[in-house]
Simulated assay, not measured.
Amino acid sequence: MQTDAYSPIDRLVHKMAFGMPIARGLLHDLETSLYKAQLAQVQVRNPVFITALPRAGTTLLLELLARHGDAVTHSYRDMPFILSPLIWRKLSTRFHVPIAKSERAHDDGMTIDADSPEAFEEVVWLHLAPQNFTPRGIEISTDIPDEVARGLRDHMARLIASRAGATGTPNRYVAKNNADIARLGALRRHFPDAFFVVPVRHPLDHAQSLLRQHLRFGEIHGEDAFARRYMGDVGHFEFGALHRPILFPGFVEETAQLQPDSLEYWLCYWICAYRHLMQREDIIWVDMQRFTRDAEIAPLLRQLDLAEDATVIEAARHTVRPITGYEETAPVAPESLRTALSIHAALCDKAAASG
């Protein structure tokens, strides 16, 4: 949601939820006690992790998959007590009011309301594994302690249980979390039945979008202290004053002479990220140029072992629009662009072969 729409009471509740870890822990423990029997019945199976660098198309894929009858996703209604979705859903229901859709802060034409799906999984990671967040960036995790994995699985079960009684019986956890690209090895180890979905956007187009958002959020963070706090509390460190890059192999060395206010920096970030990811053989790649042109989501549903859902298919046909293009000339090193285009071509081939 737009933080400028938060009332003084909304802001106070947010500050209490994120600023009082003892109270948050007590609520979590109370939820465990009250819903122990219900949680014991929940099976977390075949979770879906939608991840990539931001601005790749992860939000679009989340919006579509969230409409599936089996999908369970975080939504703005889960704020600010993300870690206790069962209790918070019960408590907050009486305060629900209709909220008209409005454009999100990214100024990209995507509209949201209180029931829209959103990327709040990072709150769980901040709670369970704060050591992975260093001042210089987010560390790559090839493994995580068993207790962290259990905590994440427990959260998935809580989210699924919180949706019980809704239309149908949703039971597939679907999360969009850009930072999960730093954890695919760890997630695979502890969730061997998981699906990883990674959209791929043309590198120059993608880098230009990343730079625009970084500059935009830099302005927002400078003007609105609550917006800056909000983004930090929910673990959105992608842009602006809060920017903490994911520390992909080679990234620190290759960007040593670059600054985040340059296009070359973001193109280098793109190269490091997708060079790292392309080594994996367990990713479902989505070529966003082709996907937004054809608006065909049925192949992705099949890859995710999700039944074809008319609501999802119709939503894709009516809401997905082709990527309109990008500036084909930009102040980047020719060598960097050649490297990025080579990686992009290889990943689009992977997407075509699997889809």
Results as ranks from 00 to 15, higher is better:
residue 316 A to Q: 01
residue 41 Q to R: 15
residue 239 F to W: 14
residue 210 L to C: 08
residue 179 A to M: 13
residue 60 L to V: 14
residue 116 S to R: 02
residue 94 R to G: 09
residue 78 D to A: 05
residue 327 E to H: 09
residue 285 W to M: 06
residue 297 I to T: 01
residue 104 R to K: 09
residue 355 G to N: 09
residue 222 G to T: 07
residue 93 T to G: 15
residue 325 G to R: 02
residue 181 I to C: 09
residue 221 H to Y: 11
residue 161 A to D: 01
residue 51 T to I: 04
residue 292 T to V: 06
residue 242 L to T: 04
residue 15 K to S: 15
residue 200 V to T: 13
residue 333 A to H: 12
residue 16 M to I: 15
residue 195 F to I: 08
residue 36 K to E: 14
residue 290 R to I: 05
residue 309 D to H: 11
residue 237 F to T: 05
residue 349 D to S: 13
residue 324 T to D: 11
residue 337 L to W: 03
residue 159 L to K: 03
residue 20 M to A: 14
residue 73 T to Y: 02
residue 296 E to C: 12
residue 154 D to Q: 15
residue 196 F to K: 10
residue 168 G to A: 13
residue 79 M to F: 03
residue 15 K to D: 14
residue 50 I to D: 03
residue 262 S to H: 06
residue 308 E to L: 11
residue 123 V to P: 00
residue 101 K to N: 12
residue 70 D to A: 14
residue 227 A to K: 06
residue 191 F to G: 00
residue 57 G to L: 03
residue 94 R to D: 05
residue 182 A to S: 14
residue 271 I to D: 02
residue 124 V to Q: 03
residue 350 K to D: 05
residue 249 P to C: 09
residue 16 M to G: 10
residue 65 L to N: 03
residue 175 A to V: 10
residue 240 G to W: 10
residue 44 V to R: 03
residue 90 K to F: 07
residue 19 G to A: 08
residue 10 D to M: 04
residue 249 P to M: 05
residue 168 G to T: 13
residue 322 P to H: 12
residue 80 P to G: 05
residue 132 N to I: 13
residue 80 P to V: 06
residue 148 V to M: 10
residue 203 P to K: 04
residue 130 P to V: 08
residue 268 C to R: 11
residue 97 V to M: 08
residue 205 D to E: 14
residue 246 I to V: 12
residue 200 V to R: 06
residue 332 V to T: 04
residue 317 R to P: 03
residue 219 E to W: 11
residue 95 F to E: 15
residue 148 V to P: 03
residue 251 F to G: 02
residue 202 H to Q: 10
residue 214 H to W: 03
residue 136 R to H: 13
residue 318 H to S: 15
residue 330 A to Q: 09
residue 310 A to S: 10
residue 126 L to P: 00
residue 259 Q to N: 12
residue 152 L to E: 10
residue 239 F to G: 01
residue 186 A to P: 00
residue 88 W to F: 00
residue 220 I to N: 13
residue 164 A to C: 08
residue 199 P to V: 07
residue 125 W to L: 15
residue 284 I to A: 14
residue 137 G to Y: 06
residue 159 L to P: 01
residue 53 L to K: 09
residue 184 L to E: 02
residue 71 A to W: 00
residue 170 P to W: 07
residue 146 D to L: 07
residue 16 M to K: 14
residue 47 P to R: 07
residue 335 E to F: 05
residue 255 T to R: 03
residue 285 W to D: 07
residue 187 L to D: 11
residue 314 E to R: 13
residue 215 L to T: 10
residue 30 L to H: 05
residue 308 E to I: 11
residue 14 H to V: 02
residue 292 T to F: 04
residue 171 N to C: 03
residue 160 I to T: 04
residue 272 C to N: 11
residue 97 V to D: 06
residue 286 V to G: 01
residue 163 R to Y: 07
residue 316 A to T: 00
residue 349 D to Y: 00
residue 189 R to G: 13
residue 157 A to S: 10
residue 51 T to C: 13
residue 20 M to N: 14
residue 260 P to S: 11
residue 64 L to Y: 01
residue 161 A to R: 09
residue 198 V to R: 05
residue 247 L to Y: 03
residue 275 R to K: 10
residue 68 H to R: 02
residue 286 V to H: 02
residue 149 A to H: 01
residue 189 R to T: 08
residue 294 D to Y: 08
residue 131 Q to M: 08
residue 290 R to D: 12
residue 214 H to T: 03
residue 146 D to V: 08
